[in-house]
Amino acid sequence: MTETGALPPYYFRVKENGALVFRIETENRAQRLELAPIATVNVRNGEIRPQGGGELNADDRAAIEAWAGERTTELSRREVSGMTELAERLNLAAQWAQAHATPEELEAVTDRLLLAMHDLRAVLARKRAERFIGG
């Protein structure tokens, strides 16, 4: 909702790689709220495809592009936050392994954790080297 309580002109049904975009229509004979599909947007590749056999006008395209930019920023922020949380989880896992885990529990997770950490370390080391060499 906007500050005045009026509905926004568009609704974005978020999906994994973008959204389905609907125009919110309230002015009809039945005075019902209708969501008219107008586009799909893919935030990974920037593709915007009209839906429903219509074309997007300049306002539609501008609103979709603005949403896609905001969504990309939000997803990036969440990804970085997730990595920060992962580092904390790794610290907690080390403490658990040292102080609380039973031998059986350690046996159940050790190989998976070691392989995942080895893979992560290799990727991080390679990326760091690329940054130093390239920059």
Rank of each mutant, 00 (worst) to 15 (best):
residue 78 R to F: 06
residue 78 R to I: 04
residue 78 R to A: 08
residue 78 R to N: 11
residue 78 R to T: 03
residue 79 E to T: 10
residue 79 E to H: 09
residue 80 V to G: 03
residue 80 V to F: 07
residue 80 V to E: 11
residue 80 V to Y: 06
residue 80 V to R: 14
residue 81 S to I: 02
residue 81 S to W: 06
residue 81 S to V: 05
residue 81 S to N: 12
residue 82 G to Q: 10
residue 82 G to E: 05
residue 82 G to T: 05
residue 82 G to V: 03
residue 83 M to S: 09
residue 83 M to R: 13
residue 83 M to H: 13
residue 83 M to G: 12
residue 84 T to C: 13
residue 84 T to D: 10
residue 84 T to M: 13
residue 84 T to Q: 15
residue 85 E to P: 00
residue 85 E to V: 06
residue 85 E to A: 12
residue 85 E to Y: 02
residue 85 E to L: 09
residue 86 L to E: 06
residue 87 A to S: 12
residue 87 A to D: 13
residue 88 E to H: 07
residue 88 E to F: 02
residue 88 E to L: 09
residue 88 E to W: 02
residue 89 R to Q: 14
residue 89 R to K: 15
residue 89 R to I: 09
residue 89 R to L: 11
residue 89 R to S: 10
residue 89 R to H: 07
residue 90 L to F: 01
residue 90 L to Y: 02
residue 90 L to H: 01
residue 91 N to P: 01
residue 91 N to S: 09
residue 91 N to W: 04
residue 91 N to G: 13
residue 91 N to C: 09
residue 91 N to L: 14
residue 91 N to K: 08
residue 92 L to R: 06
residue 92 L to S: 01
residue 92 L to C: 04
residue 93 A to E: 06
residue 94 A to N: 05
residue 94 A to H: 02
residue 95 Q to A: 10
residue 95 Q to T: 10
residue 95 Q to R: 15
residue 95 Q to C: 06
residue 96 W to V: 08
residue 96 W to H: 11
residue 96 W to S: 08
residue 96 W to P: 04
residue 97 A to L: 15
residue 97 A to R: 05
residue 97 A to I: 12
residue 98 Q to A: 14
residue 98 Q to L: 15
residue 98 Q to Y: 10
residue 98 Q to I: 14
residue 99 A to F: 13
residue 99 A to N: 15
residue 100 H to W: 14
residue 100 H to C: 13
residue 100 H to I: 15
residue 101 A to V: 01
residue 101 A to S: 06
residue 101 A to T: 01
residue 101 A to E: 01
residue 102 T to S: 15
residue 102 T to L: 10
residue 103 P to G: 10
residue 103 P to A: 08
residue 103 P to W: 01
residue 103 P to I: 04
residue 103 P to R: 02
residue 104 E to N: 10
residue 104 E to S: 11
residue 104 E to T: 09
residue 104 E to H: 07
residue 105 E to R: 13
residue 105 E to F: 00
residue 105 E to Q: 15
residue 105 E to M: 12
residue 105 E to L: 08
residue 105 E to C: 05
residue 106 L to N: 06
residue 106 L to D: 04
residue 106 L to Q: 05
residue 106 L to V: 06
residue 107 E to L: 08
residue 107 E to R: 04
residue 107 E to C: 03
residue 107 E to I: 02
residue 108 A to K: 05
residue 108 A to T: 03
residue 108 A to P: 03
